[in-house]
Simulated scan of single mutants.
Amino acid sequence: MPRTFPERSVMLRQGSAGTHLLALTEGLAKVVCREPGGAVTWLAFRGPGDLLGEVSVFHGTLRTAEVVALTSCTAVVLEAERFRRFIEQRGLVMDLMRQALSRLQESDAHRTELLTLPLVTRLARALLRLVELTAPGDRPEVVRLTGLSQEEIAQATGVTRNAVISGLQLLRASGAVETARRTIVVKNMQVLRDWATTGPGAAARPLLPTPAPR
């Protein structure tokens, strides 16, 4: 059954039982891990077509991360046992494993970027990933990204909020983006891609992770 989640609401809570998962059909969400001391670690952004909470459902474990709606989100709620039967009956276990592997590769690539690439390059890549989630398969000239705070962008790029402000200033000056409160408008995709492909070894690596089979 479909369910709507207001902006900034918790869609799946860390530590809860995997009684169900969500198939995101509309909106943008973030996945974070909350440490015992209160620190928050950014893990991923998710968009339409992504499954949320499938690992705990498939393995019968407690949720190890929290999913928060960045914008108003709509998702189909899938009960755990019915989902497991559906996957097994249709022989989709390998597809699910391939998706999990793709997400691990995405995480590894992100960690490598944090260690090797300049701030503005990481920032440009993060924005391009958000564009891909917001308008998958499209080639829009202008994309409006909403619901993001500078603190969340800082978490996703592994820098301070002040560093994000400086990076956005460079992107604005180049004509790649415009910014407002919780809004980034990508105005020139090619300029943003140029920023994203600078840095040591960047040109040799894929800009965006290959979408997992669905």
Rank of each mutant, 00 (worst) to 15 (best):
M1Q: 09
P2C: 00
R3H: 03
F5V: 01
S9H: 04
M11T: 00
L12R: 00
L12D: 00
G15I: 09
S16A: 14
S16Y: 01
A29S: 09
A29H: 01
P36Q: 07
A39D: 10
D50C: 06
D50I: 00
L51Q: 00
L52V: 02
G60S: 03
T61I: 08
L62T: 07
R63C: 00
L70Y: 03
T71Q: 10
T74G: 13
T74N: 10
T74W: 04
E81G: 04
R82D: 10
R85V: 11
F86I: 00
I87C: 00
Q89N: 12
L92Q: 07
V93E: 12
D95Y: 02
R98Y: 05
A100M: 12
A100N: 07
L101W: 04
S102E: 06
E106S: 12
S107L: 14
H110A: 15
R111T: 05
L117C: 11
L117G: 04
L119A: 13
R122P: 07
A124N: 10
A124W: 07
A135M: 06
A135K: 05
P136R: 04
P136I: 08
R139I: 06
V142S: 05
R144G: 08
L145C: 04
G147E: 06
I153P: 11
A154E: 11
Q155Y: 14
V159Y: 10
R161D: 13
R161E: 12
L171N: 08
V177Q: 03
V177C: 06
T179I: 11
R182T: 07
T183G: 03
I184F: 01
V186K: 01
K187D: 09
N188D: 15
N188R: 07
T197W: 04
G199V: 11
A204I: 10
P209G: 04
A212D: 07
